[in-house]
């Protein structure tokens, strides 16, 4: 049984602003029946301000509640303000959603953007309709994944599935999603969306290379080189953002010994940093069997 907040249950059982708006100035849609949820948002716009909003939802309880919350949030906002509403604003409005249901709030944000773009005469659907598809089961693009990772600070493929559904079907794209996350975390994805598909991000390029090369086991030298590259290019920049640093002490087979430096040394969650972020990144980027230990000085 999902744990829903009282407010979410209320917005599901007594949804506000339900129904088709015959004289709507803008309509935005997101989701699809095949995917199991869909949202249609209607806006009435007066002098650049959203005067009224209503919705129709096919979907589970949190999809209905998210649609209803969205209409309440945007009423009275200017179109520019509305465009800054994020999926987490919708989730927060409902006092939170179970993480497996976050994709319902993302659908709300997508419908809102679609409606505003339609009103402004801009091309429909900035996300989803174009760009490279990462998840074939749910038709999720790389840009949608990148955006969800950025806006919600996602770190695992499971998070991405919860927010976008990507990877929730056959699961074949999970490794690719991990590569996309690594790119965003390392800052390499830049603005992939704006640049189009021309400059495929480095982590992703690596991933493709590894994938096409098959799962040939790494030699010791190859492994060391890759560990050092990933530490330098992905892990260290991230730690430095928080005033920390990391030093490579030794690589013995698949065991990597590191020492944390800077603010990391006094950080109470340093163990989490090593086991979670450092080890996981190395496992994703270099080899699954890698174990990271903190070197004792």
């Amino acid at each position: 049984m999902w744990e829903y907040t009282e407010k979410m249950r209320d917005y599901f059982l007594n949804p506000r602003n339900v129904g088709e708006m015959k004289d709507a100035d803008a309509v935005g849609e997101a989701g699809s029946l095949a995917c199991g949820d869909a949202l249609k948002l209607y806006l009435k716009v007066k002098d650049g301000v959203i005067a009224d909003a209503s919705f129709l939802t096919f979907g589970c309880a949190s999809a209905i509640a998210s649609g209803s919350a969205l209409t309440e949030i945007v009423k009275g906002k200017t179109l520019d303000e509305a465009m800054t509403v994020s999926n987490s604003d919708i989730a927060r409005y409902l006092d939170g959603l179970p993480k497996e249901k976050m994709h319902c709030s993302v659908m709300g944000r997508e419908a809102l953007e679609a409606a505003v773009r339609a009103y402004r005469g801009e091309p429909a659907l900035p996300a989803g309709s174009e760009g490279r598809i990462v998840c074939k089961c749910f038709g999720v693009t790389e840009e949608q994944v990148v955006r969800a990772v950025r806006e919600n600070n996602l770190t695992t493929a499971e998070d991405v599935t919860n927010f976008t559904k990507a990877g929730g079907g056959c699961g074949e794209c999970l490794r690719e999603i991990e590569a996309v996350i690594a790119d965003v975390v390392s800052g390499k994805s830049g603005d992939a969306a704006e640049k189009g598909t021309a400059g495929a991000p480095a982590g992703l390029a690596d991933w493709r290379k590894r994938k096409s090369a098959g799962a040939a086991p790494l030699s010791n030298v190859q492994r060391m080189q890759r560990v050092m590259t990933v530490l330098d290019e992905i892990i260290r920049p991230r730690l430095r953002q928080d005033g920390g640093d990391i030093e490579l002490v030794d690589i013995d087979g698949r065991t990597v010994s590191v020492a944390l430096r800077g603010t990391c040394t006094s950080c109470p969650s340093s163990r989490l940093t090593i086991e979670g972020f450092v080890q996981q990144t190395l496992q994703e980027q270099v080899e699954a069997g890698i174990v990271v230990r903190e070197a004792v000085s």
Binding site: F12, L13, G36, F58, G59, C60, A61, I64, K101
Partner: peptide, 23 residues
């Protein structure tokens, strides 16, 4: 309509059932 939404409404009346819906 979607199965989980049906189940949650049924739950208000103390009616327990199952669904094959994704959610």
């Amino acid at each position: 309509v979607e199965g989980e939404a049906i189940l949650l409404h049924l739950d208000r009346y103390g009616i327990c059932a199952g669904s094959g819906s994704a959610c």
